[in-house]
């Protein structure tokens, strides 16, 4: 890393729109971190952000929805999508994914579906991001805001309670997810994905899985199967296919 790149946080606006007194997130919440960084990106671009604080449309999955699968999540977001298509205006749709709404924790399969579906629906700008890479996230939100058509951003937000790890590792686990290619960071502008962060050396998926107690039931065979799937997805992305 460049010696001066370390000081880049100082270039961001210091003003907070995301106020600590107005939200009730748990300690070390990945969603809160993601929302805060998103607000930093949107700042100065939108006057409507003034005074918005935490008071934004924000839907939280209820504990009862733990048993729901991808299909139900799709049905919940359908009214929003229909509204977007009706409006005729460009929208920015951001999904904060804390992986709470899966029937079984299956880390690799679930996440491909959403960006791919957004591309199939004709979104102009589709990207994945993670708050462990703040500048990448901020870049993508700004680009999504500037794009002429609709844009969709899928943000992985680690959840210390749901994933069962110590709260201080929130940022590190997000980094592990990206380094092990289980959640690759890419953006799709003209139909073909481009990796924005491409690590020369990919971690084994096992390291990411062993950090979290929710995956304690995984056996060696299952981890190998996940590894194979992640590898094939990642090589596809490197070739420019979704």
């Amino acid at each position: 890393m460049d010696k001066f790149a370390l000081y880049v946080p100082q270039l961001l606006p210091f003003k907070e729109h995301f106020l600590p007194e107005a939200h009730r997130a748990c300690m070390g919440c990945g969603i809160a971190l993601g929302v805060r960084q998103t607000y930093k990106a949107l700042e100065e671009k939108n006057e409507w952000m003034e005074g918005a604080h935490w008071e934004v449309p924000f839907k939280q999955p209820l504990p009862g929805s733990l048993i729901k699968g991808t299909k139900e999540v799709g049905e919940e977001t359908r009214p929003a999508l229909l509204q977007i298509e009706k409006d005729g205006q460009a929208h920015l749709l951001i999904c904060f994914d804390n992986e709470a709404v899966t029937a079984k924790p299956t880390p690799a399969v679930f996440k491909k579906a959403f960006p791919a579906a957004a591309v199939a629906r004709g979104f102009h700008y589709v990207a994945t991001a993670c708050p462990s890479y703040p500048f990448d996230l901020i870049d993508k939100v700004r680009r999504g805001m500037e794009s002429e058509g609709n844009s969709y951003i899928h943000i992985l937000s680690p959840c210390p309670v749901g994933w069962d790890f110590e709260s201080e590792f929130t940022v590190q686990i997000g980094r592990f997810a990206v380094e092990s290619a289980i959640f690759p960071l890419y953006e799709v502008v003209t139909g073909s994905p481009r990796l924005t962060i491409d690590h020369p050396k990919i971690r084994p998926v096992e390291q990411y899985i062993h950090l979290q107690n929710r995956f304690n039931h995984f056996k060696k065979k299952e981890i190998l199967a996940i590894q194979a799937e992640v590898d094939s997805h990642y090589t596809k992305l490197q070739e420019g296919k979704l």
Binding site: P9, P20, A32, L33
Partner: peptide, 11 residues
């Protein structure tokens, strides 16, 4: 450097 400031979820 300000990294701690950037990563605090509670601002």
């Amino acid at each position: 450097c300000g990294l701690c400031y950037l990563f605090c979820p509670d601002a």
